[in-house]
Amino acid sequence: MSILVLAEHHDGQLAGATAHVVAAAKAIGGDIDVLVAGENVGAVAEAAAKLDGVSKVRVADNAVYAHQLAEPMGALLVELAGDYSHVLAAATTTGKNVLPRVAALKDVSQISEIVEVVDADTFKRPIYAGNAIATVKSADSLKVITVRSTGFDAVAEGGSAAVESVDIVADNSQSCFVKQELAQSDRPELAAAKVVISGGRGMGSGENFKLLDGIADKLGAAIGASRAAVDAGFVPNDMQVGQTGKIVAPELYIAVGISGAIQHLAGMKDSKVIVAINKDEEAPIFQVADYGLVGDLFEILPELESKL
């Protein structure tokens, strides 16, 4: 068996998600190659070569792969996929954008967001926003898979894989990059953050969300919100964690003034450690929280900030 992992990278740096995908590839077993596609990605390739378990890094360095647009990336992966039994990518917006194109062009199904490898053909993945776990078996000759990073511990560094270049240049006349506006915040992106602190209706107003800033800064956390907070107009809806918002599974999730409705729990209940801060000790959030603190968030938050 041989596995191709699509490297995730931004701004010339290998993204952490790739090490998690390599871990999933190791669980499948077989030779693991990493594909680094983009423009000026030499440093990314070097970083990928250091990941434990990687046999070879294949580098497609060309302007056509800049910004990893789906059309040329799909065409490139389709060319390469013939050498492999499995093609894997992180379930990031890049992986989700590109891989289904590859699967369709190879006439195989895709298995999305796996959280566990049962064997080389069988995988577990959450469905219904994580309220059920499906075990699926694929009889396709090529398995195209996206990996939920939080399901696999990242592999360590220490490898020294060979780096070779790939000369395939896909042509793309259908799409072009116009611009990118990345969030100005130094905070990590919500779905990828190791720590998330979220506010709910109990925050009372959008202004009060500033109470979360200091804590988020100290913990390197992203700030999220419940649907109630979004619907009340406190914060924009890209901050929403939940069934129709973002699904997160950080190491630590702190829910502040959030009652814990089903739709919210669906978006965060796979977090490793959940902390709930709420004045209502009957709030359903306490049923899933590892550590609960009953009290007034307006007193607790400043104290918590000062003690971190």
Binding site: H10, H67, L69, T92, T93, T94, S175, C176, F177, V178, K179, Q180, E181, L182, A183, E189, A191, A192
Partner: peptide, 9 residues
Amino acid sequence: IDGGLQTVE
């Protein structure tokens, strides 16, 4: 996209 917005034509 993760981390922000991207515009494509």
